[in-house]
């Protein structure tokens, strides 16, 4: 069953019970995507499927025929980081680093959602264009738990990228 991951063609032939997360980590060796709960409760496994963020533990690999999956490995390398990755390093938006790939994937999709005018729980006017205030960032990133408690710095990192994009 064909799908692309970070632009490369892959073929999934495994056990149909395999989650997309386990396929990425164990089948493809893309262990940048993390497993924190396996139940859609923590966001550590967040990846982009056709540009949208999902919890890859909550979906089976076989459900993604023809899809384009982007994982953290598709962002930047340690030598050449994506602007979000750079901002996370500069602002210390992580400690143990285990939630981090999920946070960064989530942030990328979140920025796109906002650009497309998606409202959130804290939006005052759900029809107005979205202005990514810090509270908007907080709310939109609340699906990604960070037990190290790096939230304040995560918000700073994302806000900086938002600013740079203005």
């Amino acid at each position: 069953m064909p799908l692309t991951i970070n632009g490369t063609d892959h073929d999934f032939t495994g056990d149909p019970r395999t989650t997309l997360l386990d396929f990425l980590r164990d089948g493809c060796g893309l262990t940048g995507t993390k497993k924190g709960c396996d139940h859609g409760q923590c966001g550590a496994c967040t990846v982009l499927v056709n540009g949208q963020r999902i919890n890859s533990c909550l979906t089976l690999a076989v459900m993604h025929e023809g899809d384009a999956v982007t994982t953290i490995e598709g962002f930047g390398t340690p030598e050449e980081l994506h602007p979000l990755q750079e901002a996370f390093v500069r602002h210390d938006g992580f400690q143990c680093g285990y939630c981090t790939p999920g946070q960064i994937c989530s942030a990328k999709a979140m920025l796109d959602e906002a650009a497309n005018g998606w409202a959130s729980f804290v939006s005052d006017d759900i029809t107005a264009p979205v202005s990514l205030t810090r509270d908007e960032i907080r709310e939109r990133m609340s699906g990604n738990l960070c037990r190290c408690g790096a939230y304040s710095n995560i918000v700073d990192a994302i806000a900086e990228v938002v600013e740079a994009g203005r």
């Binding site: 893309l30 490995e73 340690p78 980081l81 990755q85 960064i104």
Partner: peptide, 21 residues
């Protein structure tokens, strides 16, 4: 200073216990 291992962590290249092939 930024974390020494920061670039590895943000790019998914830091290897945690379950991730050895």
């Amino acid at each position: 200073l930024d974390r020494l291992e920061g670039p590895l962590k943000v790019s998914g290249k830091a290897t945690y216990a379950a991730e050895y092939r």
